Amino acid sequence: MAWNEPGSGNKDPWSGKGGDQGPPDLDEVVKKLQEKFGGMFGGGGGKSNGSDSGGGISLPGGIGIGAIALVLLVIWMATGIYIIEPAERGVILRFGAYSETTQPGPHWHLPYPIEEVYKVNVDQITSFRHKATMLTRDENIVDVELTVQSRIQDAGDYLFQDQNPEKTIRDAIETSVREVIGKSDLYYIMTEGRSAVAAQIKSNAQNMLIFYKTGLEITSVNTQPAKPPEQVKSAFDDAIKAREDKERLENKAEAYANEVVPQARGEAARKVADGKAYRDRVIAEATGEVSRFLAVLKEYEKAPGVTRERLYIDAVETVLSQSSKVMLDTKEGNSLMYLPLDKMMGGGTDTGYQYGGRGGYTPEAGRKQAPATETRDQSRGRRVR
Score class of each variant (00 low, 15 high):
residue 307 T to C: 05
residue 315 A to E: 06
residue 175 T to K: 09
residue 32 K to Q: 09
residue 20 D to H: 09
residue 271 K to S: 08
residue 307 T to D: 01
residue 175 T to L: 03
residue 328 L to E: 08
residue 240 I to E: 08
residue 213 K to M: 04
residue 25 D to T: 09
residue 145 E to V: 07
residue 301 E to N: 13
residue 374 E to N: 11
residue 126 T to L: 05
residue 113 P to E: 01
residue 287 T to K: 15
residue 285 E to K: 12
residue 38 G to K: 04
residue 25 D to Y: 04
residue 147 T to R: 10
residue 268 A to Q: 11
residue 75 I to M: 15
residue 104 P to K: 00
residue 151 R to T: 13
residue 255 A to D: 04
residue 99 S to W: 06
residue 50 G to L: 10
residue 28 E to Y: 10
residue 307 T to Q: 14
residue 275 G to M: 08
residue 304 P to R: 14
residue 311 L to T: 10
residue 342 D to P: 01
residue 119 K to H: 07
residue 326 V to I: 12
residue 272 V to W: 00
residue 53 S to R: 14
residue 126 T to E: 02
residue 286 A to G: 08
residue 366 G to H: 05
residue 327 M to R: 05
residue 157 D to C: 04
residue 238 D to L: 07
residue 321 S to W: 02
residue 10 N to C: 02
residue 76 W to M: 03
residue 288 G to L: 13
residue 274 D to T: 02
residue 118 Y to Q: 14
residue 168 T to F: 04
residue 90 G to D: 05
residue 122 V to W: 02
residue 222 N to Q: 11
residue 253 A to W: 07
residue 348 G to C: 06
residue 378 Q to I: 10
residue 186 L to C: 03
residue 337 M to S: 10
residue 322 Q to L: 06
residue 380 R to W: 03
residue 20 D to Q: 08
residue 365 A to C: 00
residue 230 E to T: 14
residue 59 L to F: 06
residue 352 G to T: 08
residue 340 P to G: 03
residue 94 R to M: 05
residue 243 R to F: 11
residue 340 P to F: 09
residue 81 I to L: 15
residue 315 A to D: 03
residue 187 Y to W: 11
residue 331 K to G: 12
residue 143 D to G: 05
residue 321 S to A: 14
residue 93 L to R: 12
residue 11 K to S: 02
residue 19 G to N: 04
residue 241 K to M: 08
residue 282 V to E: 13
residue 308 R to T: 12
residue 56 G to V: 07
residue 36 K to H: 11
residue 148 V to F: 04
residue 355 Y to S: 13
residue 60 P to F: 00
residue 271 K to N: 09
residue 173 I to N: 01
residue 371 P to I: 13
residue 84 I to T: 13
residue 286 A to F: 13
residue 246 K to Q: 13
